[in-house]
Structures are given as C-alpha cells and as structure tokens.
Design a protein around this nucleic acid. Sequence first.
DNA 1: ATATTATTTGACTATATTCTCAAATAGAGG
DNA 2: CCTCTATTTGAGAATATAGTCAAATAATAT
Lengths: 107, 107
Amino acid sequence: MPSRQREKLKLKAEVFKAMGHPIRLAIIEMLGKEEKCVCEIVGHVGTDTSNISKHLSILKSAGILTDRKKGLKVYYNLALPCALDFNRCVGNIILERLEAQRALMAS
Amino acid sequence: MPSRQREKLKLKAEVFKAMGHPIRLAIIEMLGKEEKCVCEIVGHVGTDTSNISKHLSILKSAGILTDRKKGLKVYYNLALPCALDFNRCVGNIILERLEAQRALMAS
DNA sequence: ATATTATTTGACTATATTCTCAAATAGAGG
DNA sequence: CCTCTATTTGAGAATATAGTCAAATAATAT
C-alpha cells in the first residue's frame, strides 16, 4: 500500500479513535444542539473537570470540536456535524441487534 | 447520567474504537465492494497474517464484520454498511481541511 | 495587588493496545 | 496418517491511553 494512502488512513483513524470513548461520545451528543461550556459538560457527564478537559482536548485535536473563550468560560462547538449522524446510525444498529437477539431468545 | 445511557454509550464507543486504527480502516474500505479472504487482505494491507487476524477479530467483535468459512479460507464481509459512509465523510472533511490550510498558506 | 472562578497542564499509576514470534488449530488432499 | 495451506491463538515487550491529584494559568471582580 502506498505511503500516501497510509497517511490518509491514519488521519481518518484519528477521528474515529477520538469518538471511541463513552465520555467523548456523550460530549458529542451533548453538543448536537448548541455549544456548551466546560462546566455545563462536567455537570451533565459527571466526572471531574480535569478529566473532561482532557477529553475535550482530544476531540479538538481530532478536529471534531472547536472552542471559543467568552469571559472565564470556554465554549465548545461541534465542528463535524456528521459525527452526530454516525452516532445515530451506530445507535440504531445496536438497537436492531439487541431486538434481534431478544426475538431469538423469545422464539 | 443514568447508567442505562452509559451502557449504550459504551456499546457505541466500541464500534468507533474498532474503526480507530489505520489498518482496520483499510480493511473496511477493502470490503466495501465484496467479501475477501484473510490472505487477500494480508496481500493488500501488508503486515503479517497474525496481525491482520487480530484486527479482523476486533472488527468482528464490534459487529462491523462477519465471517464465513469456505474450505481452508475464511471470508470476511462488511456487516455495517454505514461504516463506509463514515469513512467517506471523514475523508472528505480531511481533504477540505487540508485544502483550506493550503489556501491559507498561499494567500 | 488579592481573591475568586473556570479551565488547562503536569506527574504519576493503572490499564489497554499493538505488534511480533512461535505454537496451535482446522480443513483438504495425497 | 502425514503434509500442506490458511488462519487463529498465546506469551511477551513496547507503547499508548485513561484517570487522579495537585499545581498552574487566565479572566474577572474587589
């Protein structure tokens, strides 16, 4: 495989890797409607600020979020709207699979 | 956050985590058109069989691939067609970003 | 300047992932 | 049964990631 393509795969993989953590997915879902500041995210997701801040920085490096400062607070925005679609799609598939399993058990 | 939702996030995150590796993305791209056996994948992606086999098993556990045995060979199929869409979308966005950067440099 | 609030960073430990090699399994054919 | 080919598995080392605590920064107000 050409090294040009490997570079491309690596960049793409980073986006998915960044989405591959429950806390980070929760953040992405939360930013679907509108920007939130770190403290709001901490309040909703429920781990400490330091941890959330690190997850936010991973999402930002991957290009999934952007941030802007406003006074003391930092607001994060979803920069990759299709991240929401991915999340929805995977959610639906998991639901389908669980239902299929249940149907199998019930039969 | 309710623990019901945490479970859901964890399941979804596993799918993205599985996609978060260049070799595994290469495999997904390769299976877009039709099923391939392990030896074909090894030939195309270019690492050793043992390593590919492990990546395949990760993709299978995440529900992204299914496999079927035929003689000596094992053929892998894409079970999650939207994985291809994700990959395309992220690829486009990365391209856009690179072009924007280039435009910025050129101005 | 000091204090206060919001967020980031650094150091550290624990845990998970990746790769590699050798060995094991599994099916096909002689 | 033996051999060959295709694939999986296990053990080990190297590396990466996650979480936690304390300390640092940054903006604002007193």
